[in-house]
Design a protein around this nucleic acid. Structure first.
Lengths: 248, 248
DNA sequence: CGTAACTTTGATTTACGTCAACTCGCGTGG
DNA sequence: CCACGCGAGTTGACGTAAATCAAAGTTACG
C-alpha cells in the first residue's frame, strides 16, 4: 500500500541554460539574503548554481547527505517527507523567494525531506561551505534564517494541533485560505480565484488524508455555496465564509 | 466539547525555598549552558530565578508575552498547545536538564504553548534580556540552542507524518519506546519497567487521540503479550517486540 | 488522437470518537 | 474511623468520518 510517490521521481534535468544574472535578481535579494553586504553578495553570486526543473522533478532526496541550500527563483517547490513504508506527506510549499534546506544544512544532517518542483521552477543552489562562511561573516543573515526556522516550527506545531482536532473540511478550508496568499487573485466580478499548482493528491498529502476525500469535501463545499470549482481553479465568492469554516 | 484542560491551571506556587546553588548544578551546566565561560556562568547564576512547582502547576501560559526561558532542574514539564475551542495537544515533554521557551523567546513572540509541571518540578527561569546578552557574547551557546531547535523541529515533522499514517497502536508503541529513554529502568528478572508521570489523558494528548482509546489499546497490547500493566507502570518484557509495532 | 494521469462518484468497511455506566483508590472532613 | 466526593481508569454500546475498494469519466499532452 501507500501511494505511488515514485510517480514524481523522474528526470532531474539540469540545464544551466538561461541562468539569470544574480546582480539583478530582486526575488532572491529579498528575504534572508537581503542581509548581505555588497561584497558578500558578490561571493554569493559567484558560488550560486542556477538550475531549472520541470514539473514533478526531484530537487533533493530525503536521506541523501545535505550538500547545501536552495532558493526558489521561480515556480513552487514542495517538501515531501516519506516513512519506510511508502507513506508520505507534504510538509510545506516553498514559494518563489524562499530558501529551503536550511535546517538540515545547519545541523549537518541528511536531508530530512525531499524537495520536488510542483511546476516548472528555477532554483538557485548554494553549497554548504559557502553558506557557512556567509553565516560566520554575517550575524544578521544568521538571525534571519533562525527566525525563518522558528516560523516553520510554529507552523508545524499548528499542523499537529489541527490534525489532531479538526475534521478534513476545516483543515481544507484553512489550506485554501493559506493558498490564497500565494496563488489567489481577485476576480473583477466578485470573489477570489485560487489556482495552486496542486493535484487533489497533493492537497491530500498536505492534509494527511486521501484524494477521494479531498474531491468529496471540495464538492460538498461547492454544494454549500462556499466555493465554485472550475477545473483546477477554485473560486471563492466570499473569503469570510471560507474562514468561518475553520479557526472560530 | 473539548477536554477540561483547566483542571490543571492552579496554584503556581512560587517559593524561593531550597534554591540549589547554581555553582554545583551539574544538570543545568550540561546541554546548552555548558558552552558558557566561567565569567558568563557567574552572570547566569546571578540572574537565574529558581522556582518549585507542584504537579499540575502552570509555568507559563500560551499567549502571554514571552519573558524568558526555563530550564528544568528536576521533574518533568509538558508543553501544551491549545486552540480557540478548548482543544489541546501535548507537543513534547521536557525532561530535567533541558531548556524550553527558547524559540518564542528568540523570535520575541508570545508563548506559543503553555508549560505545565507533570510532577513536582524545580525550574530555573532566565530573563529574556539576560539570555540575549549571553547569546550575543557566546557564539557557541547560540549554535547549541539552534541545534536544539532543529531537533525539536525534526521531531514535529516526524509527528505530522506519523499522525497522518500510523494507527493509534503504532503511535502508542512509538511513544512508549521514547518514554523508555527517560522513564524506563531495567527490571532484574526480565524486561523493562516504564513509569512516566503521565495519566491516560496525557498520553492521549501526546498522540492526538482519546483517553478511552489509550486504555483500550494498552489492554489490547497486554492481551497480545507485548506489555504488562501494573498500575501506572508499564512492563515491557521484550523491547524488540514493542519496536516491531512501529517503524518497520 | 490515444494513452496515461488525474478526477469523480458510489458502495462498503473500519478505526476511532462519543456517551455513559461503573470501579477503584485516595484524601478530606465530619 | 468511616462517609463522601473526586479524579483516574476501565468497559460496553453505538455512531460516524473517513479509509478502502472499485469503476467511470475527464483532461492533458506526447
Amino acid at each position: 500500500m501507500g501511494n505511488d510517490q515514485e510517480q514524481r521521481h523522474d528526470k532531474p534535468r539540469t540545464k544551466g541554460q538561461g541562468t539569470p544574472d544574480c546582480r539583478d535578481c530582486r526575488v532572491c535579494r529579498s528575504a534572508e539574503w537581503g542581509a548581505l553586504t555588497d561584497a558578500q553578495w558578490e561571493l554569493l553570486s559567484s558560488r550560486r548554481v542556477f538550475r531549472r526543473y520541470p514539473s514533478g522533478a526531484v530537487i533533493h532526496r530525503q536521506g541523501e547527505g545535505c550538500t547545501g541550500v536552495f532558493t526558489v527563483h521561480s515556480g513552487t517547490v514542495a517538501l515531501r517527507k516519506t516513512d519506510g513504508m511508502g507513506h508520505s506527506v507534504l510538509l510545506r510549499l516553498v514559494p518563489a523567494g524562499e530558501t529551503f534546506g536550511y535546517s538540515d544544512c545547519y545541523a549537518g544532517q541528511d536531508y530530512s525531506s525531499s524537495g520536488e518542483a510542483m511546476e516548472p521552477s528555477g532554483v538557485c543552489f548554494l553549497e554548504r561551505k559557502a553558506l557557512n562562511s556567509l553565516l560566520a561573516a554575517n550575524q544578521e543573515l544568521s538571525r534571519r534564517f533562525q527566525e525563518h526556522l522558528i516560523r516553520d516550527y510554529n507552523t508545524a506545531k499548528e499542523a499537529i494541533l489541527q490534525q489532531a482536532w479538526l475534521p478534513v473540511r476545516a483543515r481544507l478550508a484553512h489550506l485554501l485560505s493559506r493558498l490564497r496568499e500565494h496563488f489567489g487573485r481577485r476576480e473583477g466580478g466578485e470573489g477570489t480565484a485560487i489556482t495552486p499548482p496542486l493535484t487533489r493528491q497533493d492537497m491530500a498529502d498536505l492534509l494527511g488524508t486521501r484524494q477521494e476525500t479531498i474531491a468529496r469535501t471540495l464538492h460538498a463545499m461547492e454544494q454549500d455555496g462556499v466555493l465554485v470549482l472550475r477545473g483546477r481553479t477554485i473560486l471563492v465568492p466570499d473569503l469570510g465564509r471560507l474562514e468561518e469554516e475553520h479557526s472560530v
